[in-house]
């Protein structure tokens, strides 16, 4: 297993991952910076502080699993997987190019150690439930983590899976909603508001924890709390800033699905020093 990192190390690593996200998307000239940057602390915390996994033994049956249901945020996952040693770091900047293992959306055909292929929103919690049920059948301690976008929870399937997980007491999954307030066409509150979000999940029988998802220590303690919850699934309502860390991308719907120009990337990388 990668060594657990200290809080300061996790914070420093988050900054590095943000730089790599900017570099990858800039090199690709397309991609989704906003929702990759907002999710950094959670994904870093999962792979370097929370999940049991082993890059030397990627198919370890009892490993914890992670499903990036908002698959368009692939760069954050790729950068973290490479940092763990699952995939080569030197080719991160081939993102989205023909032949690259770093496909536009996570693709198990190219990276077999990924826990699932994603890209069509709404499907991750169901997949996570399936993996969690298999773990229970196998008597495995494996836990499954699944990250959703806040726009993504507009999909009806999310609520079908939410209802299933609590009714069937699937307590070995944790869902994280990356609550950055922005989707593709604009602000979630203008397109189809989802509030009160934590209350919705509670009404569906989940243990809901609200936190600042860009605050590493809050992220770590939320996962700790989740681990102790038995007989119900847990959801983290992880409030974040879309584009976090780059001033002109923060809270800017334009950078949902647009690569920075070379000049913008330069500025962004300066800010992330």
């Amino acid at each position: 297993m990668p060594q657990k990192k200290s809080l300061d190390e996790l914070k420093a690593l988050s900054k590095q991952i943000r730089r790599e996200i900017i570099e990858m998307i800039t090199a690709a000239k397309s991609g989704h910076p906003g929702g990759s940057l907002s999710a950094v602390e959670v994904v870093v915390a999962l792979y370097f502080g929370v999940m049991k996994h082993d890059p030397a033994n990627p198919k370890w049956a009892d490993r914890d699993r992670f499903i990036l249901s908002k698959g368009h945020a692939a760069p954050v996952l790729y950068s973290v997987l490479a940092e763990c040693g699952y995939t080569p770091k030197e080719s991160l900047n081939t993102l989205r190019k023909l032949g690259s293992i770093y496909q536009g959306h996570p693709d198990v055909r190219f990276i077999p150690t990924l826990d699932a292929s994603t890209g069509s929103l709404g499907e991750g919690v169901s997949l996570a439930i399936g993996m969690a049920l298999a773990a229970k059948l196998n008597g495995s301690p494996s836990r499954t983590y699944c990250m959703l976008g806040d726009g993504e929870v507009q999909e009806g399937q999310i609520w079908e899976s939410a209802m299933y997980a609590s009714f069937h007491k699937v307590d070995n999954i944790v869902v994280i909603v990356d609550h950055n307030g922005i989707q593709l066409d604009g602000w979630v509150k203008d397109i189809m508001g989802i509030e009160p979000l934590a209350e919705k999940w509670r009404a569906f029988g989940w243990h809901a924890i609200s936190l600042d998802g860009n605050n590493m220590s809050e992220v770590l303690s939320a996962f700790e709390e989740a681990e102790a919850i038995k007989a119900k699934p847990t959801v983290l309502i992880s409030t974040t800033l879309k584009g976090k860390g780059v001033s002109f991308m923060e809270n800017n719907p334009k950078f949902h699905g647009q690569a920075p120009t070379a000049d913008e990337a330069k500025l962004a990388l300066q800010e992330l020093q």
Binding site: L121, G122, G151, E152, Q154, E155, G156, Q183, L184, D185, I191, M192
Partner: peptide, 28 residues
């Protein structure tokens, strides 16, 4: 949630009252 990519945003701009943004919920 794809009106800028499908270009239904032209219609939305001209006839906002006849445009229904459904969010990321295609079957609905």
């Amino acid at each position: 949630d794809l009106s800028k990519s499908t270009y239904t945003n032209f219609f939305q701009k001209d006839f906002p009252e006849r445009f229904f943004e459904c969010g990321i919920a295609e079957s609905n």
